[in-house]
């Protein structure tokens, strides 16, 4: 309902970045240097200067983001500009290079900039895509509230299992203890459920078995339910089944929440280090160019 960062102020930075890219393309098209277009012509130097300035301006976003008392625009405006000018950088630096690539520090800087811009595009896509999903998945609850609810359900399940007696308490405890949330970065991002459960002898001989989506547990409960002939016991298992299903949904939501949060962060692990590398490569590129004037 609020305008997104792309739509900020009627996309003023899209127009600015577009104008910059268009001007660069026009100049490149009209430019007739004696040699093939490259960074050494007057246009090459101009475009290189603009590109370097853009890199510094884009990098300044991370400073502005942390300067909380700053009155220099809003962070949102800065991010909107950051996104569009980052795209314009792609055009300007390509023209600056005059499409000449090789195995050298100059092309390294170019390649790193491409990685930074590409990861940024991915980041924007995540920013536009995930908040809505995250909000829907949370359904108005905070993570703490969901975890508290999970603890509540665990208690209720244990109580119900105790009332049923027999193998139920052990199974429920093992499903609780071996329910996996989090784990490696990859597991979180993939949203993989590595939960396990230990079922009694006939159902797997006391070994921990994969229990993704609590499906093994649900199967086992179904089996017990089918075999129950005692009305009271059937009712108790039914109730336990309902609890386990609620718990399953909650675990799913928690996992999905961690996954979304993970992706919202993960791209920065490419974007930020690549930016640092880019700044180093850019410095080397500039130094080398001026040394071998």
């Amino acid at each position: 309902m609020q305008e997104s960062l792309l739509a900020y102020r009627r996309m003023r930075y899209l127009w600015a970045a577009g104008a910059l890219a268009a001007a660069a393309i026009l100049a490149y098209a009209l430019h007739r240097p004696p040699e093939p277009p490259n960074g050494g012509t007057w246009l090459g130097y101009t475009l290189g200067g603009i590109a370097a300035a853009l890199v510094l301006l884009l990098g300044a976003f991370s400073i502005r983001k942390r300067a909380y008392a700053s009155t220099l625009g809003s962070v949102r405006g800065w991010l909107s500009a950051h996104v569009y000018l980052g795209l314009a950088l792609l055009v300007v630096m390509t023209l600056h290079a005059g499409f000449q690539f090789g195995w050298n520090v100059h092309t390294l800087a170019y390649a790193l900039a491409c990685v930074v811009v590409a990861s940024g595009i991915v980041g924007v896509w995540f920013y536009l895509r995930y908040p809505e999903q995250m909000s829907r998945n949370r359904a108005g609850e905070t993570r703490e509230q969901m975890l508290a609810e999970l603890a509540d359900l665990d208690r209720l399940c244990a109580k119900q299992a105790a009332a049923l007696g027999g193998e139920f308490p052990d199974v429920i405890v093992s499903a609780r203890d071996r329910a996996a949330l989090g784990g490696s970065a990859w597991a979180i991002l993939a949203g993989r459920d590595r939960s396990r459960v230990v079922l009694p002898g006939a159902h797997g001989g006391g070994h921990a078995q994969p229990n993704a989506g609590q499906s093994r547990l649900v199967d086992w409960l179904g089996h017990e339910l089918a075999g129950s002939t005692d009305g009271e016991r059937t009712r108790l298992i039914h109730e336990l089944m309902a609890l386990v299903n609620t718990r399953r949904g909650l675990l799913e939501r928690l996992r999905r929440d961690a996954q979304i949060r993970g992706w919202l962060d993960a791209w920065l692990y490419v974007h930020v280090p690549a930016t640092c590398a880019l700044l180093a490569a850019l410095a080397a590129h500039v130094l080398v160019v001026f040394l071998y004037w």
Binding site: Q2, E3, S4, L5, Y8, K65, Y68, A69, S70, T71, S74, V75, R76, W78, L79, Y127, P131
Partner: peptide
Amino acid sequence: DLSGGPACVRACPTGA
């Protein structure tokens, strides 16, 4: 005491 208004709003990168 800040001239630019509430910092929370100004610091939000997405306008949320």
